[in-house]
Structure formats: C-alpha cells, structure tokens
Design a binder for these strands. Structure first.
Lengths: 252, 252
DNA sequence: GATACCCACCTCTCTAGACAAGCTGAATTC
DNA sequence: GAATTCAGCTTGTCTAGAGAGGTGGGTATC
C-alpha cells in the first residue's frame, strides 16, 4: 500500500496503470463507474491533486470520462463506417466480417446546421482550386448529427465563378446534390483524392462536436477533379474520431 | 481576491486560450519558446499549479511540447505521405499542390525491429482470415523509423498453413516482399481493404513510438484478398499521427 | 401517488508552499 | 585551449488544504 522502494515511476502514473489494467481485464466494463478522487485518495493515501492527475491520464487517453457531480466512468466505442469509395465497397469482399465490429446498422446522418456564403478561400485551398488572389469561393458549411450527437463538420469550397447562378449556391442543392449540379455545369467530378490527418481538436472544434477530453479528430480533405484534371471542389471535414471508422476499398 | 464575477471560464483555460491565440497569430512560431510556468505566474498572478495546467492544455492538444529544464516550445508538424493506392496516385491529378504541404521529399523508411513468429491470432483477425480456433497464424512484426524517429508499428497476420515453408516465414521475404511470395503460392492479393481509426495511444504504444503527449495514433487495418475472395493477410498498423498524412485516390 | 425541495456526495478549480531532476552556460581548473 | 564543476534556471511531482457548483436520491409536502 504505502510507497515502497519502487522504481522511478510517478505515483499518479502507477495509479493510472492500475486502473487501466483493471479496465483491460474486464474488471470495469464500458459504462461502469471507476473509483473517484476520494476513493483513490483513501486507497493509495495520496493527495487529491495526485488522484486527479491519475484520473486525468485515463481521460486524456479517451478511456474514461468524468461526469461532474457523479463520478468517472469507462467510455464506450461504437463507431459508424464511412466508406470513401462507394463504387467498390458493396462487392463480395469482406463478407461482412470486419476487424472492428462497427455498428453498421446504417443509422441516419442528418444535417443540423447549414450555411452557404461566398468569400475568399484560405490560401492552400485557393491554390488547389486555382483561384487567383481576390477571387471568391462558394463555401457550404454543414454540421451532421447522428442520434442527436454532432459527429462531422464539413466545409465545401467551390470556385464562385463556376457555380454562380446554380443551385449549388442555394441551401438545397436539389436531387443528386452538388456533384449532380457540377455535372450539369460540364464539370462532372471523375476523380477524388482524400487526405487524412488526425490531431487533437481545437477548443472550437471540441465544442462544436461536443467532444469529450481525450478524443482526437480526423481531418479529411477531399478534392474532386473534373475530366480535364481541374479541381472543382475541396471539401474540408472534421470528424469525431470516436464516432468513425474510415474505410477504403481498392484493387491491386 | 481577483476572481471576479468573471464569466464562467476557468483561469487556466483563459491563459491557455491567450497562448493559443498568440500562436495562431504567428506571434510564436513552430520551435519558438513559450512563456514558462514562472512567466505565467508573474504575468497572470496565479499559482504554479494553475500555470502548469494552462501549459498542460496546450501540450494535451499537441500544440506545445515541454522540455524539462529548458522550457515549453511550439511544436512542428512535418508529415510524410502514405499513399494507400499506388496504382492511381502518380497520374496527372493534383499537380503537386496539396492542401497540407507535406514534406514529400520521400525520406527513407527503414525497418528497425523485426520479428517473425507463429502463434494464434486475436479473435477478430482470426475470423477475418477464416482461421479455426487453435489454427496458427504467421505473425510478422515490424517497426519502421524515419530519420531515427519511430513512426510506424506493423503486425502482419497470415494463415500459417498457407505460408508454411515459404520465405514469408523468414525475416527476409525476398524480392517483391510478402505479396510476391503470396502470388507464387497462388494467392495473389488482388483487392485491398483499409479501415482507419484514430485514438490516443496506450502507454505501450506511446513508448514504442516515442510519442509526445497530445499525439493521437492512426490505427490502419489492411486486409488483402485473393482472387477467390479469401482474405490472405491482415496487417495491423499503428502510426504516429504527427508523422503522417494518409492519401487515397480513386475514380468516381 | 406525484411533485418540490434539500442535502450529501462528487468532481472542478485554485492556492501556497516543497523537493526532485534535467539542462545550460559560466567560472574554474588543468 | 580544453575539460570539469557548479550555480541557477527550467519543468516534474506531490502535499494539504479550501470553496464552487453540478447531480441524484431521499424527504417532506401537496
């Protein structure tokens, strides 16, 4: 119990490790309540700040979540699948067995917030779209929610000169969406490029996605190219990584 | 004393926000030294633990990094590009301009640690490979380093019965690697599936990848399928998200 | 039986100290 | 000039308190 001639590991890490092991072992399962600050203070004979630090480690790892006034609980993980390449994904491959048993039950994604505006695109995006300085972009911002929880922020940039007058500049783009309208404008997207990063969210992102501490975000940048190789759309997405598994299917 | 009818924002968050803003504005640039604990104590008139908490927020977000005995610094981000689909990536698309100006200068990835063993695969992987309980898998574990920094842990699972006697069970798989050997065995991979997650690393992963606090990892699970639809390999990879941008190219 | 209130419990924030340990650079010694 | 030592900076860990504020369950009231 008391601190012995231990190796050189901080107390708070040792406590965090104990708890982590107990979670891994199944002693505590998703949704269960973990020992709180007071429990740890008593059990290990440490100060409140030290117990807090230990619990903070688990929260920072996304393993545990604290509910003020209630306690600290083991978090759950039930992602939705986002298929980057629809064309190939419904083939015979895979036979349903996935490494992560994602909740496939295609729950409905709905748009929660939607704004359309014309403004200048940030430098790197303007470069990809081939916009000259001062040239405007049509920016469609959307937030998607699933079962009441926001999971995705999307910001789509299109050359304003290209889409002017089309329904792309309206909140409702009509049947087939933006890509169908682009096709009508003679700029049918035929090729896509997706770039993916992961990092911890900014305070703003964390708030808009209602993220718990310890939850990273995916940054997905999708660029759509027309037949002539010209980029016609850049879609910048921020995804709650605790809600998503990204999937890509392709042939050798 | 000074804790006035402030809005309901903790001091440490306000301080962190101030610093974040100064970083965003370019006042502090990647590699620059940030105000330390003592600076913040003096500047804001708070206790050491409060100043520490503010700096801890930025470290948890992966924005800043602390070097003991030296100070706290703004972190840099220079990812390498991992192309999921080579077949399409070198086309005319994209014309070099990327949204994230990744260091393309294809620096060399080298294998640092390598073990080959036969053992039972974890349950979900065994299911994907169609292994019956008790059936073994050939497990190739590798760690990749770039410029001395470990960036990728890979663990490849193949049915032991399939690869027995081939060079796949040897440390050096020979020219063309595992996939060339699989082709010789009549199981040429013709289709791939990649599933991607992101989360905070376990303590073990953080150590093996030498990750700084506030750095998430990518989990990439790649499954290779032979012509008959049978999965012949599952490759489980853990990537340092601060070192990678994942890329996928595909046609509509 | 349903509702409103209150109190005990829990986490969150913060203070004001203390000692440990890593790093840097300057002074000292060889 | 080169090597060594050391002082003083830094961050890391920890203690022992305190008040604020959210939550939930029990109690009293209607």
């Amino acid at each position: 119990m008391t601190s012995h001639p231990r190796a050189t590991q901080p107390k708070y890490q040792r406590i965090a490790e104990d708890l982590r092991r107990e979670i891994d072992s199944g002693r505590y399962r998703p949704g269960d309540r973990l020992p709180g600050e007071n429990d740890l203070m008593a059990r290990y004979g440490v100060a409140r700040m030290t117990a807090r630090q230990a619990l903070g480690v688990l929260q920072g790892e996304g393993i545990a979540e604290a509910r003020k006034g209630v306690g600290v609980f083991v978090r759950e993980f039930r992602p939705i699948r986002r298929r980057g390449i629809q064309r190939l994904s419904d083939r015979t491959w895979g036979s349903g067995a996935s490494v992560w048993s994602a909740d496939i039950a295609s729950r409905e994604l709905t748009v929660d917030q939607l704004t359309v505006a014309e403004r200048e695109a940030p430098e790197p995006i303007a470069a990809v779209l081939g916009l000259k300085p001062g040239e405007g972009a049509c920016v469609r911002s959307r937030r998607f929610v699933l079962d009441g929880k926001p999971v995705l922020l999307a910001e789509s940039y299109l050359p304003a000169a290209l889409v002017a007058g089309s329904r792309i500049t309206a909140p409702d783009t009509g049947p087939g969406g933006t890509y169908a309208r682009l096709a009508e404008l003679g700029c049918k997207p035929v090729h896509f490029q997706e770039h993916i990063r992961a990092r911890m969210p900014s305070a703003d992102e964390a708030e808009r996605l209602a993220l718990l501490p310890g939850t990273p975000v995916f940054l997905v940048h999708r660029t759509a190219f027309a037949e002539d190789g010209q980029a016609v759309e850049v879609n910048e997405m921020v995804l709650d990584s605790a809600s998503y598994v990204l999937e890509y299917d392709f042939d050798a």
